[in-house]
Design a protein around this nucleic acid. Structure first.
Length: 575
RNA sequence: GCGCCAGUAGCUCAGUGGAUAGAGUACUUCACUCCGAAUGAAGGGGCCGCGAGUUCGAUCCUCGCCUGGCGCACCA
């Protein structure tokens, strides 16, 4: 398909302007108002070098390029040259491209098969999978799909939080108050109960904390009793997590979590010593980062056991050696910004230049509203909303709505899952990931307006229109070659332009690690489709017009399904 | 105290160094004999946190301040 910015840049180019075609291309904008054309070239920058009023430069350019074969009109307004592309030609190009590529439309190969790792979800074993975990899980999954779509070879890692002092606590708590039967019944909630009780009692009796640290030291030393308990907790938790991952249709290539690196750390502690980076301080070993305005990175505790940064260093080097990644993306909450800064600095000091390819992709906090108060969810205090409950409630609500709508011939069980869970995922991906938000049942269960169900509804509606076409017509639609001037009405044309931009939007979303860019574009497409649907009758008598319009409907449905897929959301044909 | 992030319509949020700052929601109306009303259309609603600076031009960049969130040594 033709790149219209290139066409315009080539047309505008003139030696006297003193700009290369690439520089011109970068200046080209899409006007805020469609009445001002499809593309615009602002001439403010040229005023200085050409010593001429920008309005006059724009007028000259407009005179020179008007009449080009791809333009309906080239117009000068103030300091802008506005380009109106030949609508029928443009629509034909776009619609036929989408319909011939099908589910490949939107994909590209800017990645050229290079290796990328995405680390996401990474819940803590033996703790509940709550609504706060959805962000890393869903954003990470979308980033994986985006990178895959633009041609990278992506490995998904669930860096399980399956190690650390918390397991010392859990072991101590289980020994004191635990029961096998209770644990088997509802593992996570039971473990949470023990964990919460541990913290309550530790407030009264601080010696429990020492006991927990001791238990972790034993675990790290490989004491069979501690290891056996830890393994039990890990297995029980994983099978629970997998239930949620199944609901979300998310999977991983590796579950190598923190424990995986437990025997890989001594090497780096030695290396830090050799490089003279390690300092003893109050019994612990640290890397001093004061010079860079950061608190020290703690490598070992005074009891000799390891810490977060230590394990992350081991993990990073292991991954570099094992996968030789081009980029390693960490989808982890913004609360850990400092940790990642410290960790990258330590890697840099160790001489690992590839630390620049390790990218922390942070996201904002989810908190809970407690009357007038807003507070963080706390596993310790037991104030959490379980993700599984949220998903199930969304599915139930969807099923209720579907029953009201009397949708006959639709598998409510199946589709309510696709729509309810899709709604939760969509909402998670619709705002900039850095924004904090307060969890609200009203919001997560609202299906009107800019929501997942709205986009899915649009997809179902387009599917429904296509069901009204005959097999023969659909074959003709796929073959193309109509008079696309039937698609030059304002609402059809707006839709065409949005479909055209999808591949570059996918690249931008991947480039910025920001799925919401695609989500927003998808909302625009859905709105635009619905407007087109209302403005124009599709199944008209005239065969050529009918087929041209069906071709646009098919292209729209394809694009919506592709984009939903990239976000990890299903696209049901009926709902 | 120091560091990082955020501040745009009543609420939830998009947005770009450039043309008249946009959606959704809420509220008031209108449109199903018609391809799916989980839809579309109309209306009002804005010192783009405050103050300086850079620029032909700043909601956007720089600095200062205010407000809120998060983080800052033996948790992860």
């Amino acid at each position: 398909m033709k790149d219209f910015k290139d066409i315009i840049a080539n047309a505008v180019y003139d030696e006297a302007l003193g700009l290369s075609t690439d520089e011109i291309r970068d200046l080209i904008e899409i006007p805020s108002d469609e009445k001002m054309g499809d593309y615009a070239f602002p001439c403010f920058r040229l005023a200085k070098t050409m010593r001429k009023a920008p309005q006059m430069i724009a007028a000259d350019i407009a005179d020179r390029v008007s009449g080009g074969e791809f333009f309906e009109k080239v117009e000068n307004v103030n300091a802008y040259v506005n380009f109106f592309i030949d609508r029928a030609y443009f629509a034909g190009q776009v619609v036929e491209e989408v319909n011939s590529l099908g589910d490949k439309y939107g994909r590209s190969n800017v990645g050229e098969g290079r290796k990328v790792i995405v680390e996401y979800s990474s819940p803590n074993i033996a703790k509940p999978f709550h609504i706060g975990h959805i962000r890393s899980t869903v954003i990470g999954n979308a980033i994986y799909k985006l990178y895959d779509a633009v041609g990278f070879d992506v490995t998904r890692i669930n860096h399980l939080g399956d190690y650390g002092t918390q397991f010392g606590k859990m072991i101590v708590a289980y020994r004191k108050w635990g029961s096998e039967e209770e644990l088997a019944q509802d593992p996570i909630k039971t473990l949470l109960k023990y964990y919460t009780r541990f913290h309550a009692e530790a407030k009264e009796d601080p010696s429990l904390e020492d006991e927990a640290r001791e238990a972790f030291v034993k675990l790290e030393a490989g004491e069979p009793e501690e290891v056996a308990l830890w393994k039990k907790f890990r297995e029980l938790s994983l099978s629970e997590f997998n239930r949620v991952y199944d609901m979300l249709d998310i999977s991983f290539d590796s579950y190598a979590g923190e424990s995986f690196y437990s025997d890989k750390m001594p090497r780096f502690i030695d290396e830090l010593k050799e490089k003279g980076l390690l300092i003893k301080s109050e019994g612990a070993q640290i890397v001093d980062l004061e010079e860079w305005g950061m608190s020290p990175a703690m490598i070992t505790k005074s009891d000799g056991s390891s810490l977060y940064v230590t394990r992350d260093i081991a993990a990073a080097v292991y991954r570099k050696e094992h996968y030789d990644f081009y980029k390693c993306i960490y989808v982890v909450a913004s609360q850990q910004n400092l940790h990642f800064k410290q960790w990258k600095k330590v890697l840099e000091l160790m001489g690992y230049e590839w630390q620049e390819d390790c990218i922390h992709v942070p996201f904002g906090l989810v908190s809970l509203s407690d009357g007038d108060d807003i507070k963080m969810m706390s596993t310790r205090e037991g104030t959490v909303v379980f993700l599984e409950d949220v998903l199930n409630t969304a599915v139930d609500k969807t099923a209720e709505i579907m029953k009201e709508k009397k949708t006959d011939g639709v598998d409510i069980d199946e589709v309510s899952k696709e729509v309810g869970i899709g709604a939760v995922i969509f909402q998670e991906l619709s705002n900039n990931r850095i924004k904090d938000y307060v969890f609200s049942w009203d919001k997560v269960l609202n299906f009107d307006g800019e929501t997942g169900p709205y986009v899915q509804y649009t997809h179902a509606r387009a599917s429904s229109v296509l069901r009204n076409a005959t097999e023969e017509e659909l074959a003709a639609v796929r073959a193309g070659g109509f008079d696309y001037s039937h698609l030059s009405g304002d609402s059809a044309y707006t839709l065409v332009k949005l479909l055209y931009r999808v591949p570059e939007v996918v690249i931008e979303a991947a480039d910025k690690y920001e799925p919401s860019i695609l989500t927003r574009h998808l909302i625009d497409i859905a709105q635009s489709f619905n407007k087109f649907y209302h403005d124009e009758h599709i199944l008209v008598e005239d065969r050529d017009e009918r087929l041209a319009k069906l071709a646009l409907v098919l292209a729209s449905r394809t694009v919506i399904a592709n984009c939903l897929g990239l976000l990890g959301i299903k696209a049901p044909e009926r709902m």
